[in-house]
């Protein structure tokens, strides 16, 4: 690339770079730095460096909450991906008109406020609610079982809320997928499910990766869902951050928790990035080895 071309590229990416730095990196660092101050009585933080907050965070038994947050997020992500794959596959196989209609239907819930939709679930899952009555009528549950205010409720509502965010990136990838490859696989002797797994899945790999991120990241930071349909025994880290910020008026403690949460999002992100890189490297290595084998074989 020419020198002027490189400068032009810099010039174009500069505004978004500045934006991200000023409104994302700097605030994150500010939040992190607050965790090293002592709380003040007015709900803010005092000047002067201290490690007391971190010691308090470590002392408080958060292990269970962090663990619950991670497994609920992970299960939500897994369920969303498993549901999205066949869904995206079948939408991509529809004709253009039906595709637009179904894609529109998937986006339709977004016309209603997120909080209203979660509230609707709270009503549905209520002991006097529709679902409980149906389950009792079918003999699958009795009145003592609570559908609401537990981890199960959080899971169901999370899957419901985040499913469109999983379908959309996979569908976008599936739309570009060449379905004659599936026919080719079937033609060469593969059963439908094998073709789906070995041809379709690798074909939409990048879509699946972004779907995982699109679900896992908001699920980790989820606050409204556990607050509305979760119970005392199913709090997530999002609820704790809220409690530390407002009722407890301990901003440094909340900041420390936010930092922990931030890292628990960054770690899987880094892991995904590393996996992709490693796979590319493995393919390159295999290519090089095979070429070497070919060359030595030719010499022998």
């Amino acid at each position: 690339m020419t020198r002027s071309g490189r400068w032009a590229e810099w010039g174009v990416s500069l505004p978004s770079f500045v934006w991200l730095t000023v409104f994302f990196v700097v605030p994150t660092l500010i939040v992190l730095s607050i965790a090293f101050h002592a709380p003040s009585s007015d709900g803010g933080f005092a000047s002067g460096f201290t490690m007391e907050t971190w010691k308090a965070v470590v002392r408080t038994p958060y292990k269970e909450i962090v663990w619950r947050t991670i497994w609920i997020s992970a299960v939500t992500t897994a369920v969303c991906i498993l549901l999205s794959l066949p869904c995206a596959y079948s939408i991509a196989r529809m004709n253009t008109r039906w595709r637009a209609i179904v894609a529109g239907l998937i986006m339709l819930p977004f016309w209603t406020s997120f909080i209203v939709r979660v509230f609707a679930w709270r009503t549905l899952l209520n002991p006097e609610g529709f679902l409980q009555h149906v389950l009792i009528a079918l003999g699958l549950a009795d009145a003592s079982v609570s559908l609401n205010y537990n981890s199960g409720a959080i899971l169901v509502v999370s899957v419901y809320s985040f499913l469109p965010f999983a379908i959309m990136p996979i569908y976008t990838a599936a739309e570009k997928f060449d379905f004659s490859l599936m026919e080719a696989a079937r033609d060469l002797g593969a059963r439908s499910f094998f073709a789906f797994r070995k041809i379709f899945l690798p074909g939409v790999k990048r879509g699946v990766v972004s779907a995982i991120l699109m679900v896992f990241i908001p699920a980790i930071g989820s606050y409204v869902i556990p607050d509305l349909v979760g119970g005392r025994d199913s709090e997530l880290i999002g609820n704790k951050i809220y409690q530390r910020t407002f009722p407890d008026r301990n901003l440094p403690h909340a900041s420390a928790l936010a930092a922990v949460m931030g890292f628990s999002v960054l770690l899987p992100l880094a892991w995904v990035a590393w996996m992709i890189k490693r796979q590319d490297a493995r393919e390159a290595k295999r290519l090089a080895e095979a070429t070497a084998r070919k060359l030595s074989g030719g010499a022998a």
């Binding site: 060449d178 041809i199 690798p202």
Partner: peptide
């Protein structure tokens, strides 16, 4: 196939 349909991966 007309478009060859080789598996790209």
């Amino acid at each position: 196939f007309q478009n060859y349909a080789l598996f790209p991966t």
